[in-house]
């Protein structure tokens, strides 16, 4: 009997301490290179792009399938890993990932966008809810990345440009996997260079991408190459 009690206490202790271990939090913080780390897009972000000012009014994208690797082997993969990063919502710029154990890793991997299996799985909730405005309504599919703004270079109504990138069906697959060598950090800042994206586009000619296309896939790749790990 006493033996039993002893074991139960031990067991409880184990569970309790285990709970403590579950507090291993890893955070990814998204920032834009162009200044403020947290800016509110109710004010627009102004880029000095050569002599032509460019204002960004919307910047939203999906981060999914977050993985930590050690020597190319996955040591931790977040479950149900879908996050909408929206620069008009400061709270969404930081993604906290909880792990049961302390992670020893040398590589961080994640996707920008939504994989094809999820794209054909019907209605989903939370960050994947269609009320998040990241779903094409006339032709099914998630919008992986949304970049909208204004530039005098755009000969459009209110000089607007809109880039809605996505696509999950061959040949227009927009999903991008990003891989960064990062060692055991509990906080990783990822910086997006918007100027690099904008200067890669000839805004006078191309100011609307609203469906899966060759142009959209190309821009998705440029965007993927515009993220870097930011060391303060």
């Amino acid at each position: 009997m006493i033996q039993k009690v002893k074991y139960s206490i031990l067991f409880c202790l184990l569970i309790l301490s285990n709970k403590d271990w579950a507090q291993n939090l890893y955070t990814m913080q998204f920032v834009v290179k162009e200044g403020a780390t947290r800016f509110n897009f109710s004010d627009t972000l102004t880029l000095a792009n050569d002599s032509n000012d460019v204002q960004i009014t919307t910047l939203k994208f999906y981060v999914s399938k977050i993985q930590f690797l050690k020597r190319h082997k996955i040591v931790f993969e977040e479950k149900n890993s879908f996050h909408l990063v929206d620069f008009s919502n400061a709270a969404s710029l930081q993604i906290a990932i909880a792990s049961d154990s302390k992670l020893s890793y040398d590589e961080l991997r994640f996707n920008i966008g939504i994989d094809s299996a999820t794209n054909v799985s019907g209605a989903m909730g939370n960050d994947l809810d269609p009320t998040k405005g990241m779903y094409w309504t006339w032709q099914s599919g998630y919008i992986n990345f949304k970049l909208e703004g204004q530039s005098v270079l755009c000969n459009t109504r209110n000089n607007e440009f809109q880039f809605h990138l996505g696509g999950y069906m061959s040949p227009y697959v927009g999903l991008q996997t990003l891989i960064f060598p990062v060692k055991n950090k509990t906080k990783v800042s990822l910086q997006l260079d918007i100027s690099k994206i904008i200067t890669s586009i000839d805004l006078a000619k191309s100011n609307h991408i609203m469906s899966p296309s060759t142009e959209g896939v190309l821009l998705s790749k440029i965007i993927a190459n515009s993220f870097t790990v930011y060391h303060k």
Partner: peptide, 12 residues
Amino acid sequence: GAINHLDMQALA
């Protein structure tokens, strides 16, 4: 065939 799942149909 623009819509890939019955759930998403109503959005159109």
